[in-house]
Computed example of a mutant assay.
Amino acid sequence: MVQLGAIGQIARPVSDIQQAVDFYGGVLGLPHLYTFGDLAFFDCGGTRLFLSANEGSENPSILYFRVDDIQTAYDELRARGVEFEQAPHLIHKHDNGIEEWMAFFPDPDGHLLAIMAQVG
């Protein structure tokens, strides 16, 4: 039986590859691996983010970035110009007391991204 492991890459269409590179690398601070034509790749803690200049998908998946301290991450990203839909908020409290906190924000194409943290 096949056992799926960690996500190795996430693909996301973007309308303007240079604007996306500037946002994901410059604003969000993701390490830029390389750009090849209308394709750009970033490292997200071992998962590769693959951006391609293509408007084909209307509902791309939401990318959730784990952070150690969601309030600090929220404050720093806001200082860099990220406009969040709302402040970090509790999404779920597990039976063991661990809380899942998230805050959502759009990229330049309006696709949702989120920061997330487990608190407890």
Rank of each mutant, 00 (worst) to 15 (best):
A114S: 04
L112M: 11
T72K: 00
Q18R: 13
A20M: 04
I17T: 07
G97P: 09
G81V: 05
L90K: 12
G46I: 04
C44A: 15
D68R: 00
P13F: 03
Q9W: 06
Y64P: 03
G29M: 06
D95R: 13
R48W: 02
G46W: 05
I17E: 10
Y24F: 04
I10H: 09
G46Y: 02
H32P: 07
F105D: 09
G8Q: 12
G26H: 06
G26K: 04
I70E: 05
G29Y: 08
L51P: 04
A53Q: 15
I10S: 10
F65I: 02
W101D: 03
Q118P: 00
E83R: 13
V27P: 06
H32Q: 14
T35S: 15
K93A: 15
D38Q: 15
M1Y: 12
C44D: 05
I62P: 05
L113D: 04
R48D: 09
H32K: 14
T47K: 03
N59R: 14
G56V: 10
P13R: 10
T47L: 07
A73R: 00
R66A: 05
T35Y: 06
A20Y: 08
G46N: 12
I115W: 00
I62V: 15
V27L: 09
V67I: 02
D75H: 08
P13D: 07
V82Q: 02
F41R: 12
A20W: 03
L28M: 07
H94F: 15
G45R: 01
I70C: 02
G37A: 11
N59K: 14
I70D: 01
G45L: 01
G5M: 10
G5R: 08
G26D: 01
A87F: 04
Q19H: 15
D75L: 07
F41W: 10
I91P: 01
G29H: 08
H92C: 05
L51E: 04
D95H: 10
A73Q: 00
D68G: 01
L51F: 03
M1P: 14
G37Q: 13
G81L: 06
E55S: 14
A53G: 09
F65P: 07
